[in-house]
Nucleic acid binder design. Structure first.
Lengths: 346, 346
DNA sequence: TTACGATCTCGAAACGTTTCAAAGAGTTGG
DNA sequence: CCAACTCTTTGAAACGTTTCGAGATCGTAA
């Protein structure tokens, strides 16, 4: 552990401690040859500034954090990249925290971040209720921007996508291509995004007589959960089986696609699939997946910009709520109009 | 920003400052009702400990970092999850840093981490040469464990997978199923993992007369690069086109699969594909991808354990180099023996 | 020659903790 | 009643910075 302090550098260079600090922070105040001597001493001793001491004195950190629901979900990694891009040369660094959709972990992360006097936080919250840890966090004055979630409250910025519209787009598309029995695959419905996507598709279905919507709840939004849900669907008698599945995200959709293929059902002929997020792997699937596209990197970039703005402006900052429009991308998995059902089931 | 300090808590509770600190760090030394009073004051004032001050006094942080080549690659997110699991209740937190395969960014991250007096670092380095930033970092005494890279040097632990063997497994499999012309898709070859995988497959091919290996270099290891490489392959005259592609990772392989399908070439009949890493999306592809499996989470878990061990043991620690064996997982993308070529090209 | 600015350097204070020797207050045993 | 404990609490020092008023040095104008 490097243990050289500014004091030793000063001694080595034959100057006072304050001068070394000036070389580091206000080089223009120091005479050229003194500066030179100090820099040499720094190089020779391998001095590394102690950030804790700096921060203690300065009163604040130079970091922001982004807390995501699932680091392993490509949707979030793209959001992270967007955020990293946005802060690139603003002098702050980004810490990535994974709440794993677990309120306890989210809370612990927030605890740690607050102890660090973090400069600001981007978060897709698990628990955003009144009196939640996050609420307290905000009230104590740390700037927070909600990501992929819009907030009715006015003490924070948010950047979101209109998920109800997204669900509606998917529903309209499926109804429009002739499907009369649609499944919604996703859960838990306590996740607002999932609930919104569901109510969107439900609204689209309700606009048309004779179209029914079946909800297949899943415990989470993973590929494995998609496989399991697809198993249930495939086990249904062909006559009562939905001809299309709208999945709450692409991981689920990929799981459904995989399981259906494995069981000999053809996509989209036997069952059409529409996902959500339009992660890169959606297009890369060998039956390319239709999906509701969210501007993933832009989400992260915009959120980070809002945060920097708030950090900059302080009290003068006015909170804003940015909502992006989703866009349906139709690919092979839902492209073909459904044909009369064939008897071809396991 | 919460600005209450231990001093105010002390005043509020009518005790000295040292007692408050004891309540926080050594509660057993404090009488029950004093403790009670202090805790009440803490709750009432919303006191949050200042980690910078704590760390300054204690001399070290409670964080480790993991620096990965690409946060958006599921391989690395799984490694991260493994590492997070391993440190779960050791009292240290994990910071995730993304070098994006860029030496400059890696350097900047290491600068910041050193200023933080980070407790230890897991890293898949971009630049591990003699005299590199990383080398200096290690020499100054911060514990570092190399991930997915084995090191000849003896001043650090490493956890890796035998990539030469992995390449060899893939090569043997393809040769064994009758392929006589194989393509290696991947690059840049300056990435040691890529070079090893290549030399593995080259060795396997060299063991058999009449089998040729064509190298298709790519600028990076992404899906898009895979698509581009597949385009080149597909454009070749059928007679001179390889019948199998071994890709340096699964992202490339998925790109190749997608582009081939798009161009009407069938996998595996027209061209077999084998990837590397066995990320979850490999199995989820509708033509499930054969792949060389790395124990992703275990890689992260083991690396984190070694790091904690070194942090614990200090000078007494003996560096170790763990090497895992990869395992070939054969799926549909390379399952069928190649048939006589058909003329069926764009 | 003096006075004044301009430049540069210095030294001490402050940031909020943790730690530790020492003191205070009871208790117990002789 | 004193000595020797134990149990609590105290207050000051130290961690490595940054900041800022003040001092030192030198050149220049009056």
């Amino acid at each position: 552990m490097s243990t050289t302090s500014i004091k030793e550098v000063a001694r080595h260079a034959g100057v006072s401690l304050g001068t070394v600090s000036n070389v580091l922070n206000h080089p223009d105040l120091v005479a050229a040859d003194t500066r030179r001597r100090v820099l040499d001493a720094i190089a020779e001793l391998g001095y590394v500034r102690n950030e804790s001491a700096r921060q203690l004195r300065a009163g604040r950190s130079r970091h922001i954090a982004i807390v995501v629901l699932d680091v392993a979900n490509p949707f979030f990694t793209d959001v992270v990249r967007g955020a990293e891009d946005a802060v690139e040369d603003s002098g702050v660094a980004v810490m990535v925290c994974n709440s794993a959709d677990n309120a306890g972990r989210e809370q612990r992360h927030l605890d740690i971040l607050e102890e660090q006097r973090i400069r600001g936080v981007l978060i897709t919250p698990v628990d955003d209720s009144r009196g939640s840890r996050l609420e307290k966090f905000i009230q104590r004055g740390t700037p927070v921007v909600l990501v992929d979630r819009n907030s009715g409250r006015h003490n924070r910025c948010s950047v979101a996508v209109d998920d109800v519209l997204g669900g509606r787009l998917a529903g309209r598309h499926l109804v429009g291509t002739g499907h009369r029995h649609i499944a919604f695959v996703g859960g838990p419905l306590t996740i607002p995004q999932v609930a919104d996507r569901h109510s969107g598709v439900a609204a689209a279905v309700a606009d048309h007589d004779g179209v029914t919507l079946t909800v297949l709840p899943t415990p989470n939004l993973t590929v494995a959960a998609g496989r399991a849900a697809a198993g249930e669907l495939a086990d249904l008698a062909p006559a009562s089986r939905p001809t299309a599945a709208f999945c709450a995200n692409d991981l689920l959709a990929l799981g459904v696609l995989q399981e259906m293929t494995k069981r000999g059902l053809r996509v989209p002929d036997d069952i059409a699939i529409v996902g959500y997020d339009d992660i890169e792997f959606a297009a890369a699937a060998a039956v390319p997946l239709s999906s509701v596209r969210q501007p993933r990197e832009q989400l992260g970039r915009t959120a980070a910009q809002l945060l920097l703005e708030e950090i900059e402006a302080g009290d003068k900052h006015e909170h804003r709520h940015v909502v992006f429009q989703p866009e349906l991308v139709v690919r092979a998995s839902s492209e073909v109009a459904p044909k009369p059902r064939r008897a071809k089931d396991p």
